[in-house]
Design a protein around this nucleic acid. Structure first.
Lengths: 248, 248
DNA sequence: AGGAAACCTTGACGCAGATCAAACGCGACC
DNA sequence: GGTCGCGTTTGATCTGCGTCAAGGTTTCCT
């Protein structure tokens, strides 16, 4: 039950400097070597756009470090974030030429890219890669659908809680203070980016963050440093899609 | 640019009685034959639940006729539809045992099913199937993300327009009256199901339908028979994600 | 035909969140 | 130090949609 908008195991490749959270058991040395041959790295500064929606996209790849967002924009300027790319997440779509969304680096970003054509031909030759990619895509689909529930049916406070849960869970290994059952992390998003993700305005996000702090649900030091209760740890049985349950 | 929550080309199989909207060019007779060997049909009545979220799911398959919905429900009863399954759409997830959503037949429904285990082993042996499935899943992902924009940023009126557009486009070949640039079809959803899809209440859906009718944007005969302007035909160049543009 | 159960429409009212507006904190740069 | 710009907070007000409630239609059952 992937509760996370971008919780997908990465494609493994030879010498990427990230610690992959999951490894594809089926990959053998040959495939890794061949992936290494067609890959290269790109770096972006915070705020830079990686790809514009509609642009020709000649690579696929995954995030090595930093954070990027996928957003859609309407003609009148309303925007909705449709995905959050954290380290090890995959971007791009074998078989499609144009990008479907804007991809923007919200922090400094390093991506491990594969040129699309050779990647595609390799996919045709090595079934494992297509199967791995299918698994990852299905996880993303689950995550997108879970987010539809958040967008369609949750209150502002619940939306914030859902987002903080996701980010906290992804960063858990880095910043966990296990003794206290709390997760501590730095928000990698501005209030505006949070609002774009949650289908809210930045003012509402700010107000609800203040409210959660006032109510003692979360701790805020400065604007970005957050402490949230770790419910995956404290009450693990209930399972399901209660997003922490930390609302009143 | 798939503008449609469930616009995916089907997996081909030998003798399904549906007219597949797209055919997998790579499938050869062998594969079709093998698919035929492990498949069977199931029928459901309107209102029946195909699978409950969390249940063990021992098959995958696609819709032959009728309409089904994928919905998620929170503990307190709030529900959000996360997918609409029209004829030729695929359900199920090779590699996962439990169903992630409730699947409910909203009309009488015929499904063409494949037992999951043999389907999976076949997928391992025939790469084309995994690749076809990947394409379909990527289309679904695009559709889900487009729906996130609808849920997060559109007004009630726009949401209704988006939904009617999608259904009209899927049914276009059936009910098109090309001379007049209009699409005519019968709504296969109750007001409540529409509300669940759009993140609204059924009252709001009803009011907005009445308003669109009053404003002359759509025609309603009875509660279900609808005529909408066909903007994909009238103003095709602008393209993009203007959902018909029939507001104001 | 009568009655019940779905399904749909319409009205009155209230509230969550949007909008408009002002001001604060903080780092960067002169 | 001053001031510019950006991100953020907070307040006042407005409004779209939810909520509650009543009544209408259609279909189906006895």
């Amino acid at each position: 039950m992937p509760n996370d908008l971008s919780l997908t195991a990465p494609l493994t490749c030879g010498d990427c400097p990230i610690k992959h959270r999951a490894v594809c058991a089926r990959c053998d040395a040959d495939e890794l070597h061949r992936l290494d041959e067609i890959k290269y790295y790109r770096t972006f500064e915070a705020g830079q756009t990686v790809i514009w929606s509609g642009d020709k996209m000649d690579f696929v790849g995954s995030v090595v470090s930093g954070i990027a967002t996928l957003t859609q924009t309407m003609e009148d300027g309303r925007t909705q974030m449709v995905g959050l790319l954290l380290p090890s997440d995959f971007v791009g779509r074998p078989g499609r030429d144009g990008a479907a969304y804007d991809v923007v680096a919200t922090t400094d970003l390093v991506m491990c890219c594969f040129r699309k054509k050779p990647f595609e031909t390799m996919m045709l030759e090595t079934p494992h890669i297509a199967q791995r990619l299918l698994e990852m895509t299905l996880d993303e689909l689950d995550a997108a659908r879970e987010w539809m529930l958040v967008l369609g049916r949750k209150t502002a406070r619940e939306k914030i809680a859902s987002l903080l849960s996701i980010i906290a869970r992804r960063n858990a290994t880095l910043d966990l203070k296990p003794a206290e059952g709390q997760l501590v992390f730095d928000l990698p998003l501005t209030r505006e980016a949070m609002a774009d993700y949650l289908g809210l305005t930045l003012e509402t996000v700010s107000r609800q963050m203040s409210a959660l702090k006032r109510d003692g649900v979360i701790l805020l030091e400065g604007k970005r440093h957050v402490t949230v209760p770790d419910f995956t740890r404290l009450q693990d049985e209930a399972g399901d899609d209660n997003d922490g349950g930390w609302l009143s």
